[in-house]
């Protein structure tokens, strides 16, 4: 019993290095993709075809090709195309690829939310003399955020699990550490413990998002 516990303790200690990388990758992706996604969604709805069409293409590529492929492309692409001076760290590459990919998904969520806002909200704002940006940030966006929270939660939960894909460019994150430890020790426990870590992360995500939804439920619309 003592032995089993200390074994599990040592596995957890080994995995926590990878866990740190996973959490950092997750946090940076969220920090980049949530605001970037809003920008992308506005570009996607632009009146100007020169803005709208490239952004539409970007979104459809991000959503239409595997994230794993995008990771490889971001990491190796510049190296193969422009030569060895154009390289950056694996972790940086992972953050860029995840940020770009998730921004595209979030952009479509924002767009759905923005486009489903009733026209009357814009018209009431216009007649009251709000500028376009006041209307967007004070009237439209707060309502959109409430409406898109459930869809966003789903996406964030997927992101927690997707961080494991970063191992294809050899980022030493939780999944990769669990895998190597498991095969080195010929043991299934590192995989189980990694699974528990992912599960707890998503539990926390769900809890936070639920709190957010509750705090915005002061009005129903």
């Amino acid at each position: 019993m003592q032995q089993a516990l200390s074994y599990i303790g040592s596995v957890i200690a080994t995995l926590s290095g990878g866990l740190g990388q996973t959490l950092l990758l997750f946090a940076l992706t969220i920090l980049i993709s949530l605001p970037l996604g809003l920008l992308v969604s506005l570009g996607r709805m632009s009146r100007f075809a020169a803005v709208r069409i490239p952004i539409k293409l970007y979104i459809s590529i991000m959503r239409g090709t595997p994230l794993m492929l995008q990771l490889l492309f971001v990491y190796f692409g510049p190296f193969y195309i422009f030569g060895p001076q154009f390289t950056y760290g694996r972790f940086t590459a992972a953050v860029i690829a995840f940020g770009l990919n998730y921004a595209a998904y979030f952009a479509e969520i924002y767009r759905g939310g923005i486009q489903s806002m009733p026209r009357g909200q814009y018209e009431a704002s216009a007649v009251l003399g709000f500028t376009r940006s006041q209307t967007f940030f004070r009237i439209i966006l707060p309502q959109v955020i409430k409406n898109i929270l459930p869809a966003t939660t789903n996406e964030v939960i997927t992101l927690v699990k997707d961080t494991s894909l970063a191992q294809v460019i050899a980022v030493v994150e939780l999944f990769r550490v669990a895998e190597t430890t498991s095969s080195a020790q010929a043991s299934v426990y590192p995989l189980i413990i990694a699974g528990v870590f992912y599960y707890i992360m998503n539990y926390v995500v769900a809890w936070i998002m639920e709190r957010a939804e509750k705090s915005l439920s002061y009005y129903s619309a």
Binding site: G120, A124, A126, V127, I139, P142, Q143, Y219, S220, A221
Partner: peptide
């Protein structure tokens, strides 16, 4: 000029939030 007039809509269009 917008501040010179007001409009009351048929279906109110209050800001729900």
């Amino acid at each position: 000029i917008r501040r010179r007039f007001g409009l009351v809509f048929q279906s109110f269009h209050l800001f729900p939030h």
